Computed example of a mutant assay.
Amino acid sequence: MNSSSKVASTIVKTAAPIMLGAAVYAFGLLYFIIPNQLMEGGVTGITILLNYAFNIPIFLTTLLLNLPLFLLGWKVLGGRQIAYTGVGIGALSLFLWLFERMIDAGWIVTFSTEHDFILASLYAGVTLGLGLGIVFRFGGTTGGVDIVARILGRKFGWSMGQIILAVDVIIIGASLLYIPREKILYTLVAVFISSRVIDFIQEGAYAAKAFTIISDDAPQIADLITAEMDRGVTLIPAIGAYSKQAKYMVYCVVSRQEIRRLSQLVKSVDAKAFVIISDVHDVHGEGFRQT
């Protein structure tokens, strides 16, 4: 297999799961969230509010709101970091449109309840978390606030988590104008369950992971991480107990969305590198939370 075929194969193997995750997420929105007048955070929350207030199809507002953010992200962050976000945005808009047509045609009967909203919020959280977890695991996002958070994080060093949380609070708070308070409380249940499922899919309960990489090509790996991911890297001198040879270890902390990307970069330089991935309970500094 030549290099172009390998690149095409890698793109397909990454884009297909992102599209699958976007489909699951879109299904959860239309099957559980909207029929029960629940909410969601981020740009998706804005699209849902517009749907409640003016009955605008959410596939349309999802595309229109995310398109300028995507173009801004492409300019500021670069094509390599934002490419799979474009796949996520496009797939989400497509599947929202497709499922809306199927619901209108009666091919899908949504889950709507008058009393058991806790069941609706639980299943909504699981479905949305599963979809987003798959998207994140393969290096994509569904756009929106994630792009804004990355840009502000790079410009000002603000934590992505803090930015996303602040926007979610504003949007969910604004939804009080259109839906009852108890629906907001059920929404918070769905958001909490969704976050736990995302963590489970990502194989970790924390927002960051520490990589310790032992390789004879450690300097090259460190340079590649710095160039491709814009993450700080530390080279730690070490001596092999068996070989007695001096070498370096690479230490780097990344967000959960970047786990797969960093693993791929390491393998591209040294397929036999010894890699340790550890949970990080709290991270302070550039690219994470500032103290």
Rank of each mutant, 00 (worst) to 15 (best):
residue 76 V to Y: 07
residue 26 A to R: 06
residue 200 F to Y: 15
residue 200 F to C: 13
residue 119 L to D: 04
residue 92 L to V: 06
residue 81 Q to W: 01
residue 58 I to M: 05
residue 158 W to H: 12
residue 48 I to P: 05
residue 70 F to C: 02
residue 168 D to C: 06
residue 146 D to Y: 13
residue 11 I to A: 05
residue 95 F to R: 12
residue 55 N to V: 10
residue 71 L to H: 08
residue 178 Y to V: 15
residue 158 W to M: 13
residue 225 I to L: 07
residue 87 V to N: 02
residue 140 G to I: 08
residue 30 L to N: 14
residue 162 Q to R: 15
residue 157 G to M: 08
residue 75 K to E: 05
residue 148 V to R: 14
residue 49 L to Q: 06
residue 128 L to S: 00
residue 98 L to F: 15
residue 1 M to C: 13
residue 26 A to F: 08
residue 28 G to Q: 07
residue 61 T to A: 10
residue 167 V to D: 12
residue 135 V to L: 13
residue 246 A to P: 10
residue 70 F to K: 09
residue 161 G to T: 11
residue 268 S to N: 01
residue 51 N to E: 10
residue 23 A to I: 12
residue 36 N to T: 02
residue 113 T to I: 12
residue 88 G to F: 05
residue 125 G to W: 05
residue 201 I to E: 02
residue 85 T to D: 12
residue 151 I to G: 05
residue 218 A to F: 11
residue 35 P to A: 05
residue 81 Q to Y: 03
residue 73 G to R: 02
residue 168 D to H: 01
residue 240 G to V: 05
residue 193 I to G: 10
residue 136 F to K: 07
residue 30 L to M: 12
residue 163 I to D: 01
residue 227 A to P: 02
residue 1 M to I: 07
residue 79 G to Q: 03
residue 263 S to N: 15
residue 254 V to L: 06
residue 25 Y to P: 04
residue 156 F to S: 03
residue 152 L to K: 01
residue 251 Y to M: 14
residue 180 P to S: 04
residue 250 V to D: 09
residue 153 G to F: 09
residue 12 V to S: 11
residue 265 L to E: 04
residue 152 L to S: 00
residue 277 I to R: 01
residue 44 T to M: 12
residue 19 M to S: 14
residue 273 A to M: 07
residue 260 R to N: 12
residue 123 Y to H: 11
residue 32 F to Q: 02
residue 82 I to F: 00
residue 265 L to P: 01
residue 99 F to S: 02
residue 180 P to E: 08
residue 138 F to N: 12
residue 13 K to G: 04
residue 209 K to P: 04
residue 194 S to N: 12
residue 226 T to Y: 07
residue 192 F to V: 06
residue 106 G to A: 07
residue 285 G to F: 06
residue 12 V to E: 03
residue 36 N to Q: 07
